[in-house]
Each structure stands twice: as structure tokens, then as C-alpha cells.
Design a protein around this nucleic acid. Structure first.
Lengths: 241, 241, 241, 241
DNA sequence: AATGAATGAGGGTTCATTCAT
DNA sequence: AATGAATGAACCCTCATTCAT
């Protein structure tokens, strides 16, 4: 009984173990450069076993991404919904907390995978838009709209502001798995003039701080009166020409 | 005579043609997934010719990155130095203009290449830090420090603010060569609720607008008084625990 | 009780079921191209079970051939021995009847297996010569010699004539499992000029007819007056029913 | 010049060399059991080179069959057309001569290939019917019909008789590449009672002799008086030399 | 006796690199 | 300088066989 459990447990655990191993290696080496043996070895099985669970390397990639995106987004909705407070608090507090839970987990690597592989496997773009971009954008956009409606925020361009908040978070995930993962890069000896090492937690706190300050309504700040979105767009186009 | 001239011109132009072709394909497919034939074909030469100019695929990659980084950074220093005005003007005006010159050129792809390949070729990190991160950081940091010294800006955490300004710009370059390059991703039919397509120029304008507003000194905005950097860091650590 | 009976029956029936399944798949796909899973699946057991009965794929092949050859030859001796009549009758009657019993059964596939696999497994040649070629040749040769001795047949080259009688029969078995098994090959639409589909029963009747006529001594020709082709075809169909 | 010729000649000769090598190994081992390395090695090139000329093992197989069938059939029409004489002479003389040119060449193996592989690659059946079965059947059928019309032959079932003539020839080709190719099979020591080794040339001569005798109209029998077996064998050997 | 998960050697195919022309 | 035919190491994937249950 217990014995059969062992086998059984093993079999049920395999897919997750393989996906974890695959995520790790894909993120480290890139999809094309990872050998299936390496994934198998890291999951503690032989190469053949991999193919009992996933029919090809490519399907493995998609499964990895699908699995991580689905679980990530499930967590996110809860997190934001569970917390209350002012719009500013919601943004700074629960968003950052949620982001950190991704940043600190292997899921952070999925962003790199997506950036790297969408052009070779366009279906991936579909997952990503459906599971992450759209629900995430709506979630944050709603918080912003609520803040604007309540007079807490200035009437800014909501879509652009969502990106102002989100893009640096994504960028930090990418950074973590590329430059930040290169051992000696940031700590080259004898370079006093080096840029200080980026502390992601600190940076995100500062970033939200900065953006929120730009976002808050302030009747006294006459000289920084917000442009209307439409006007801003017009100016942007002028400058682009 | 003319023939030899042509030949000569051809010969001198080859390295550039090869680098351009390589950048294009590397960025599109990723380094590991591009075949040398494809680079050669795109440059209009045979596979063998490629090896007359670069001793290996890997060296070709490094040459591509080196070349683009060097010329990009050369342009940047000039650009910022040539323009005057308030610190806010400098940031919004010349930085955005400089960024756009990269974003609109194939050089924008280099960011993707670096993100993708540093972990496999750590020397790339060295180029990148030396040629881009450090001088760029110093340049923008100096503008910020000048603005703070003159009282135009609040006394913010300079390093973090540099990243708040820069990371979204980099992120747009990555986006351009990944999700934005997937034909149908953003324009799936019958999806009224879709996130609006990201217009990079417009977004960057809005982003700078937002950050600058958070940056400007404003004696009246008492309730949004800046934390001291040290205090912020402390709080970040508390929340991380 | 019943259960154990069933189980017992099952167990005893297994080897035959496996051999039948194996013959079918080996003949269809060829030995090297068939997967052991497929044989097992067709026998309704798991892959592991196959190995309880046969130690390897190769041994399975040999067992298949051995079993079919032995039972085929056992039937043949009886058949010819049981029948009397003129030599011509013996050849046309009992031989064709015996051939048909093979042609209409899965045993017909063994010829294809042998043709295909002898060179990779030379032991197979030994079975085949010992169990089929030699006894068969002797059997038919004896009938011919008896006919020659009695003056019914001309004094022909006995060995060659045996082959003239036998080779087309073997060839029809091969045909059945190769070209004749290709669905559309013989029935391609819109091809009025196509070769008429080969009806094995009819052909064998005609062939024996033709050969016997070449074989009969001149004085005997009368009593072996040729059937009309149409009549022969009718008879062939009757016998096939 | 001569040097460039060497390279050039090599390149032009490659496809033929590869097809020859492939035919040889495919016939010997069977398609599924042959390794591409072996084909390449036998053609004196590396495995990679094979793939410069044929995109896959399967395409190589088809090319082998296509090439042999096309050239075989081209030869055949000429051969039969060039010769005259009585219908009986045409059949025995030019058909046998043509058959021998196939039997004595590697092309004889194609029949084994087809028998073995049609079921896995049904397109092969199309080639075969189009290039061999149909034209061949028509060619021989016409000779028979001419003989019947002229009164030289009895009014037999033409289609069946074509097969009576042809199937043994095909069967000999199969035999050559299966049982006859097993070294010790026919010559097992100490077996006095063994079936005499089949001499293909002799057998075919005898077979045509036998069938023709069954075919000839009674009045014609005289001028087609049977050779004595011994004489026939002698003649066969003469012609083979 | 039966299962089916696991293995790993083996084979088809690709592609960076070389080199004769 | 340029070519492109040739190479062969490497990689994805398959499948005969084993073995714990």
C-alpha cells in the first residue's frame, strides 16, 4: 500500500518536477540552447522519461509557460481584491507585495521566456495576453480610475500610467535573470566608480513613491497642472514628427 | 577601374552588412536558433564568406553588440551635452529624443540580445556595463543632481530615479522586438475589451510627464513629502520580511 | 472457479494470441518497423506481458515463423496424401485446395516475412528449407515423377516444373500482403486503361490449366481438354464460395 | 580546370552513387533496419552529405525506386519492340533477355523493396503501377493477343497468362535477394536429399518452354517441338555467357 | 501473472565550421 | 576574396527492454 503510494506519488509529482526543471534551464540558457537531457537530469529522471509526459521540447515550453501564467494570475486577483484602503495604498501595498511574490519565485523567469521566445512560438503571445496583460491591466486600471473618481488622483492617462507602474516591475524580473545573474558583472573589482548595485525591493518602493507623487491630486501645485490626456497626445505627436 | 572600385567598396562594406544582417536575425530568432546560412543569405553572401570576416558565430554576436553599443553611446553623450535648459527640459527633451533615435533604429534590438544572451556569454555583460550602464547612469544622475542642487527637484534617491526614468525606455525596446512583433497578438479580432495597443512615443511622453511631476520640488505638497532614501530602504526591508 | 478457469484459459491462450498479433503486425509493417507496443496492444495485453512469453522481439519473430510453418506443412502432407486420381487431378485439385487454405489464412503472410527478414536472421532460412521447401518440393516432385512414369506427363525437367507450379502461388501470397493491400493502388479513379485487378483464385486455376497442358503427353491431351476461360472462372468462383 | 572538373564531376556523380548505395543496403537490410550512416559510408561520403542530396531517408527510398523503375521500363519497351519473329519467339527470346538484364543488375532488388515497403509508403504503389505494371502488362498482353489472332496461340485468358509468364520472373528476383542470398542455406553440408539449387536462367528457360507448349495451338505444336531438357539447359548456359 | 513507468542506447537530422576550387 | 560542397559532432526523439509494484 505504502509502496504503491510511493510509485503513485512519484508519477503524480513528475509533471510538476519536470516543469520546474524546465523553467529553470530554459530561463538560464534560453530555449534553443537547452538540451533535453539537461532538463531531465535536473528533474532527476532520464531523458526518455521526459517524453512520457511531454511529447516534444516545444510542448514542454508551452506547458511551462501556461502553468506559471495561470497560477500567477490566480494569485494576483485575490491579493488585490483582499486589500482595501486608499487607492494609493492599494497600489503601493498590495501590488508591490504581489509583485514580490512573483519576483522572489521562479515564476519571475517566465517574463524572460516570453520576451525571448514569442517570436518563435506565436501561440505564447495568446496565453500571455489572455492570462496576464488583459486581466492585469484591467485590475490596475480600475484602481486608478477609482482613485481619479474619488479625487485622490489627478485625471491622468490611465493606460499609460498602468504601464508606468508595471513596466519597471517586469523589467526587474528580466534583469534578475539576465544581467543580475552574471556573477562578476556588477561587482568587478577595483571599480570604485561603478553604478551601485540595483536593489530591486528598494527600487520598486522608490519608484512607486515617485509615481504616486506625480499621481496625487494637489490643488496647490498650480505650476505642475496636469495636461489633459488629449493635449499630451497632441504634443507627443508634434515631437514625434 | 570602376569594377575594382566597386569591389573595394564592397569589401569595405562587408563587415557592416554582415553585422546588420546578424543583428536582424539574432534579434528575431535568438542567437542559438539562428543559422549562419540565414545571416549570410540576408547579407547577400555565401556562408563561407561570413567566416572570412568573423571567426565564429559567437564572435559575430559579440561584434554585433560591441558595434551597436559603441555607436549608441557616442551619440548619447553629444545629444545630452548639446542641449541646455532646465533639468526637467533636459530630461524630457533630449533624453526622449535620444531614446527615440535608438528605439527607431535596429539598435533597439540590442537590448533584447543582451537580456537573452548575457548568461551564456558573460563577457557581454562587461561591454554593456562599461559602454552603456555606467556612462548612461552617470549622465542622467548628473542632470538629476544638478536639478536637486538648484532646488528644481526634490532631494530624491538619485540612483533609483535614474532607473525609474530608464527602465521603461529599455522595456519598450524589448517589447518592440518581442510581443509587439507578433502580428496578431494585440489585434485579435472581436475583442472589444482588449487593452489598447501601446503607442511607445505617447507612453514615454506620459511617463516622463508623470515622473517629472513626482520629481519637482513643491513646497505645498506636504502630505506627499519625500521619504529620505535611507528611511525608504528601511521600510522596504520591513515589508520584505 | 469460473474466474480461475477463465484465467487459466487466458494464460494458455496467450502465446497463440501473441503470435497471431505479431504475425499480423510484422507482415503489415515489417519486422524492424513494428513496435512491440503495437503487438502487445493488438493482443490485448501490456508491453511487459509480451516479455513474459518471449524473451525478445527477435525470438518472437522466430516463434511466429516456426509456428506457422510447422502447422502449414502438417496440413499439406495430409491433404495431398488423402487424395487420389490422375497426377493431373492431384496437382490441380489437392494442391490448389491446399494452397488456398494458406492463401486465405494469415499464414499467407509468412512468405512475406521470410522474404523480408531472412537476410537479417539467417536461422529463418533453415526452418524454411527444412519445413517447407524440401518436403514440399519432394511431394510435388513425386507426383510429377509418377505422372511421367505412367506416361501421363512428358519427360520434363521435374525440378524446374515444380517451381513453375509453386512460384506463382507464393507470389500471390506476397502480392496479397503488399500491393494488393494498398487501398487505392489498383482502383485509381478515372483510369479505364488499368490492368484488370488480379483475382488470385481465378489466376491460379488458369495457371495450373496452362501448365498442365504444357505438361501432358500428346496422347493424353484429349482427356484433359482445356476448359474455356469463362468456365474456369465460374468454377473458380464456385470453389471460392 | 581539371581540378574544378574533379569537384564538379564528383558533385554530378553523387546522386547516382548515393542511389546505388542506398538500393544495395535497403535491399539487403530492409528500409527500416538500415542506418543512414551505412548508406553514406557505402557511397563513400559522410552522413551529412547524404542530406545535401536527399532531404530524408524516406525521400531517398522513393528516389531509389523511382530512378530504377524509370530506367528499367525505358529499356523494356525498346527491347521488345526491336525484336521480331513469331509471338513465341518474342516471348521466349526478347522477354527473357530483357528479364535477365534486370535480374543480373542491382535493379532486381527493387522488386523486394516494393514488396517490403509499399504498405508503409503507399505512394510507391503509384509509381510501380504507372511505370511497370501497366506498360509491362500491355506490352506482353499485346504479344499474346497477336499470337492468338494469328492462330499461333490458343484463345487463352490473356490477363492470366501474362501473370503466368511474369510472376515467376519477379519471384526469381525476390528469391535472389532473400533466400538465395543466405550463404549456407542451400548448401548445408551432409544433406544429400536437399532440393537442387535453383538456377534462375535455366528455370526461366524451362518455364517459358512449358508455358509456351501450353499456349500453342495444336496445329502449331509441331514446329515448336520441345527441346530436350538437357539441351535447353545447355542453351541457357550459352546465352548466359 | 500482469502492469506500465522508467531507462538509455541508438538513429535520423541539423548545422557550425572547414577547405578545395 | 568568394564560394559551396563536405564534414561530423551534437541534439531531439524513439523504442526494446527491465523491474518495482
Amino acid at each position: 500500500m505504502i509502496a504503491s503510494h510511493t510509485r503513485q506519488r512519484r508519477k503524480e509529482a513528475r509533471p510538476k518536477e519536470l516543469l520546474d526543471a524546465a523553467l529553470d534551464v530554459f530561463v538560464r540558457k534560453g530555449f534553443a540552447a537547452t538540451r533535453t537531457d539537461e532538463v531531465a537530469a535536473r528533474a532527476g529522471v532520464s531523458k526518455g522519461t521526459l517524453y512520457l509526459y511531454y511529447p516534444s521540447k516545444e510542448e514542454l515550453l508551452k506547458a511551462v509557460i501556461r502553468e506559471r501564467l495561470s497560477s500567477a494570475i490566480a494569485a494576483s486577483a485575490d491579493e488585490v481584491a483582499r486589500h482595501g484602503g486608499s487607492a494609493a495604498e492599494l497600489l503601493r501595498g498590495s501590488m508591490v507585495r504581489w509583485w514580490r511574490s512573483i519576483f522572489d519565485s521562479p515564476a519571475s523567469g517566465v517574463f524572460k521566456l516570453i520576451i525571448t521566445e514569442v517570436r518563435n512560438f506565436p501561440e505564447i503571445a495568446d496565453f500571455y495576453y489572455r492570462e496576464v496583460v488583459e486581466p492585469g491591466h484591467r485590475l490596475i486600471g480600475d484602481v486608478l480610475r477609482r482613485g481619479i473618481a474619488s479625487g485622490e488622483f489627478r485625471p491622468v492617462d490611465v493606460d499609460a500610467t498602468v504601464y508606468s507602474l508595471v513596466l519597471p516591475m517586469v523589467m526587474l524580473c528580466l534583469h534578475k535573470h539576465s544581467l543580475a545573474a552574471c556573477p562578476h558583472a556588477e561587482t568587478a573589482p577595483g571599480c570604485a566608480s561603478r553604478v551601485p548595485v540595483l536593489d530591486p525591493q528598494h527600487f520598486i518602493a522608490q519608484h512607486f513613491q515617485l509615481v504616486l507623487r506625480g499621481l496625487l491630486a494637489d490643488s496647490a501645485s498650480a505650476h505642475a497642472a496636469p495636461e489633459k490626456p488629449a493635449a499630451a497626445a497632441r504634443r507627443a505627436r508634434r515631437e514625434a514628427a
